[in-house]
């Protein structure tokens, strides 16, 4: 269980990137953070990953207070950030230095197999396509078996076909150890494809506007009515979050209640 309690972040220049974020994510749950740019999504992930310090509030993982990078928390950045002087194999093995050579090799080869890049193990990152590089980055985060995996718009730079295949690779890896996943995206389809819950954020200061649970069975049929419905629900919530006349966050629950009453 990942818990964020009254989390706030104000940057040195006075930007209020996050204000009073409260969120708890169950073990093995996939939550997607969705919202326009500047909502503080990246900031939130960097706080959880321990790369920045929060101004106020606390982050707990299974009750343990997180302060700084934690071995059970992995992150995949928006860019692959592979080390150009290491081969694909060595990049994936980067976080496994503490393991014996055999165990390391076994884990990396399994991951390579999972992401379909076994025959590229010895190549340099620069010889891979963008989608392949991002797959390597995801594998690098997965092989350490994190209990929480953070993904910051990992597919945003890719075309739709590559993105769809990467969704499958991601779910394939997730199935094995079922970590908690926090996925940042600005793509509603992507959120509905992957997540159990969508958290809609609002900017200035960054805060949570609404949460919608997406209880579709997996694997998800993207052409089905239920899927369409969920997409529409998230879009509606996003619409409301963007509407400046909306003083109070009006949650989906309240809107439904209002609709019933009428």
């Amino acid at each position: 269980m990942l818990e964020l309690e009254h989390l706030s972040k104000t940057y040195a220049d006075g930007t209020r990137a996050l204000s009073d974020i409260n969120l708890s994510v169950r073990q093995a749950e996939i939550v997607s953070l969705i919202g326009g740019s500047g909502c503080g999504k990246t900031t939130l992930l960097r706080l959880i990953a321990g790369l920045d310090r929060s101004s106020a509030g606390a982050i707990r993982l299974d009750g343990e207070l997180l302060s700084g990078p934690h071995p059970s928390v992995g992150i995949v950045f928006q860019e692959p950030r592979l080390l150009p002087w290491l081969s694909v194999f060595e990049n994936i093995a980067f976080g496994l230095e503490h393991l014996g050579a055999n165990e390391r090799k076994a884990r990396v080869e399994h991951a390579l197999d999972k992401i379909g890049l076994s025959e590229h193990a010895k190549r340099w990152p620069r010889d891979l396509s963008g989608g392949q590089q991002q797959r390597v980055a995801i594998a690098r985060a997965f092989v350490t078996n994190p209990t929480v995996l953070l993904l910051d718009e990992p597919f945003s730079a890719l075309d739709a076909f590559t993105r769809a295949s990467l969704h499958e690779h991601l779910l394939g890896l997730w199935e094995e150890t079922r970590p908690t996943v926090v996925l940042v995206t600005h793509d509603v389809q992507e959120a509905v494809t992957l997540a159990d819950r969508a958290v809609v954020m609002q900017p200035k200061p960054g805060r949570i506007f609404d949460e919608l649970s997406l209880t579709l069975s997996r694997p998800r049929d993207k052409t089905g009515l239920a899927f369409e419905n969920s997409v529409r629900r998230v879009l509606t919530a996003l619409d409301h979050s963007l509407n400046p006349s909306q003083q109070q966050p009006q949650r989906e629950r309240d809107r439904q209640a209002a609709a019933l009453w009428w």
């Binding site: 790369l51 071995p71 950030r81 080390l83 350490t144």
Partner: peptide, 11 residues
């Protein structure tokens, strides 16, 4: 700095 952060993530 982005590569250095990868090092930080892996402590």
């Amino acid at each position: 700095r982005k590569l250095v952060e990868v090092g930080h993530v892996f402590r």
